[in-house]
């Protein structure tokens, strides 16, 4: 087995008396798409926030390529290759769609903070941003302010920003939530293409089980902040943990015995 790119060891966060993520230990490999499922409030987004650095861990460790990143600020983690798309869209509302994406491209450049270079002199940033917008079908709205986009397009822009950031670890938090039915395939195709490249580590929080089953190589289930199942999709979706998580009841054991 190859070494995991991203790994969490006993990762825990406590809010007062409530343990939102409880000693989660697992690893994510390159080329692997892991779906993280669980009911609302199970700690999926909190787990993401711990990995990308929006929340500080109470205890436990996070490793990227074997290097501990637990104490690093979100900006340093992003620079090391952790990319995050947020569940509640997090955009630059009064900048245009194109500027939103371009800022992600710029973040990767060594001229990102240059005082002497004009942003407009970087043709390659502008073009890369345009490609990212084409990938999510937003290129016709490039000069619209992000705040003026309809909800589904905001979600697409959120994804485009992460694509433009070109991280090594992609973290999608319900990327298709709130999208209309005909928009969903665009994003799913994109994720599938990303996966096909084989060198990216992809984490996906998703509620739609059909999406999860078609895309994921592996599913992990969070229940009340605890890792309660981990395995290949067919196996996990049939398991008691998932049944319980999504149906609220454990499958009738007695029924199997007749």
């Amino acid at each position: 087995m190859s070494v995991p790119v991203l790994e969490t060891r006993d990762l825990t966060i406590r809010f007062g008396g409530h343990v939102a993520v409880n000693a989660v230990s697992t690893g994510f490999r390159a080329g692997e798409l892991t779906a993280i499922v669980g009911p609302n409030g199970a700690g999926k987004t909190t787990y993401f926030n711990l990995i990308s650095g929006q929340l500080p861990a109470t205890s436990g460790q996070i490793f990227l390529d074997g290097e501990e990143i637990t104490a690093l600020p979100p900006s340093a983690r992003a620079q090391k290759g952790i990319g995050r798309a947020f569940q509640i869209t997090s955009l630059f509302p009064n900048l245009t769609v194109h500027e939103n994406v371009r800022l992600a491209v710029q973040a990767r450049s060594r001229h990102a903070a240059s005082l002497t270079r004009l942003w407009s002199s970087h043709r390659e940033w502008i073009e890369r941003a345009e490609r990212a917008l084409e990938e999510v079908n937003l290129h016709n709205q490039r000069d619209t302010l992000a705040a003026a986009l309809p909800h589904g397009d905001k979600r697409k822009l959120e994804v485009a920003i992460m694509m433009a950031l070109e991280p090594r670890v992609f973290m999608f938090d319900e990327p298709t939530a709130g999208m209309s039915v005909d928009e969903v395939p665009v994003i799913l195709d994109l994720i599938a293409k990303l996966k096909a490249r084989g060198d990216k580590t992809i984490l996906l929080v998703e509620h739609k089980m059909d999406v999860v089953r078609s895309l994921a190589d592996r599913i992990i289930v969070l229940l009340n902040g605890t890792l309660s199942a981990d395995g290949d999709p067919a196996e996990v979706t049939a398991s008691a943990a998932v049944q319980e998580a999504y149906l609220g009841v454990a499958p009738k054991r007695g029924a199997a015995h007749g």
Binding site: S75, F86, L91, F92
Partner: peptide, 12 residues
């Protein structure tokens, strides 16, 4: 526009 987003993109 969005401090935490800027931080998440890698800007200190």
């Amino acid at each position: 526009e969005n401090e935490s987003r800027a931080e998440a993109l890698g800007y200190r």
